[in-house]
């Protein structure tokens, strides 16, 4: 039989222990993040300069810059967005405005989209190489890479747009109908503009996902480090550049770190923009 005092001490001890373990776990996560950023800064910052951002790739990437790589990356992302946004938004509109949720077609499409979201990126690469590069004959090109990425970010766009549409006030639709607006007008003039910030959040996250992607791009957009003339050219994305420098180029670590810093900074800015948008959007409709 424990005395009440020892039981209280025991409880105090276990509360404290629980807190300490949690604190260690939580801070370990942040320490690791700090380590990664610190190591990248230590290795990469001396290498970083304006010339590095704009210069041509030289000596396999060890010297020179990443100018053409950045241009290729932007082209790949723009193609991916341009291709994925129309079907993504269209699919979400259909799911939210035209079918009853829970019916067989709605569930089949939602299931297909969710399954697509679960496909590993390397499989997108395998598919992209077989379909876009070989069957459609686009070869290793920026276009192939962009189309592959479009498939990858499509489910993300569908999901975010759907959430944006569904979180609009329900009475928008009957009000518009009561004013005698057709469904097309309602969608074009009321629902889409109102859901635009939410859709933009999805697009922004899509940009971040595209920039982070490597596995799907190595064998679709290729390795070339020239300045790309057209979407038909091969061009390496920034993430592929980091991979190549780290794995295949001896003494490429400094340039790889500098490129990783650039990539990290881009992702940071884009993600901050997305959460800024999302917060404003939430305040508008849920306060």
């Amino acid at each position: 039989m424990k005395s009440p005092v020892s039981r209280r001490n025991h409880r105090r001890f276990s509360d404290l222990a629980c807190g300490i373990v949690g604190a260690v776990a939580a801070s370990l996560t942040l320490v690791v993040l700090g380590c990664i950023v610190w190591d990248l800064l230590r290795l990469g910052l001396p290498h970083l300069s304006w010339l590095f951002l704009t210069g041509e790739v030289a000596d396999g990437g060890r010297s020179g810059g990443i100018g053409p790589v950045l241009v290729s990356t932007v082209m790949i992302v723009v193609i991916a967005l341009a291709v994925a946004i129309p079907p993504g938004v269209g699919c979400a509109l259909w799911l939210s405005e035209f079918v009853r949720p829970g019916t067989v077609p709605a569930r089949a499409i939602t299931g297909g989209v969710d399954l697509l979201a679960s496909v590993p990126s390397i499989v997108f690469g395998l598919f992209g190489m077989a379909f876009f590069a070989q069957v459609l004959g686009l070869g290793f090109s920026i276009l192939s890479g962009g189309l592959t990425l479009a498939c990858m970010i499509l489910p993300l766009l569908v999901r975010t747009t759907l959430t944006a549409l569904q979180s609009l006030p329900v009475d928008l639709r009957p009000s518009a109908a009561a004013l005698g607006l057709t469904q097309t007008t309602t969608i074009r003039k009321i629902l889409l503009p109102a859901a635009l910030p939410g859709i933009l959040v999805g697009v922004t996250i899509g940009v971040a996902r595209s920039l982070s992607e490597t596995a799907a791009l190595i064998f679709t957009s290729g390795y070339a480090t020239r300045w790309p003339d057209s979407p038909g050219d091969s061009g390496r994305a920034l993430s592929v550049h980091i991979y190549d420098l780290a794995m295949n180029i001896p003494n490429g670590a400094a340039a790889a770190s500098a490129s990783a810093l650039v990539l990290l900074l881009m992702i940071l800015v884009i993600n901050s923009f997305a959460s800024f948008l999302a917060e404003r959007w939430l305040r508008r409709y849920h306060s």
Binding site: A26, T29, L30, V32, L33, C35, I36, D39, L40, L43, A208, L211, S212, E213, T214, S239, I242, Y243, A246, M247, A253, A256, S257, A260, L263, L264, I267, L268, N271, S275
Partner: peptide, 23 residues
Amino acid sequence: NQRMLELLAGVPSIVFGFWGLTV
């Protein structure tokens, strides 16, 4: 703490891989 975690969640896998390889 949550912001930091969200930041960490956004770090591209290639950066993790590179860090793993060099450190």
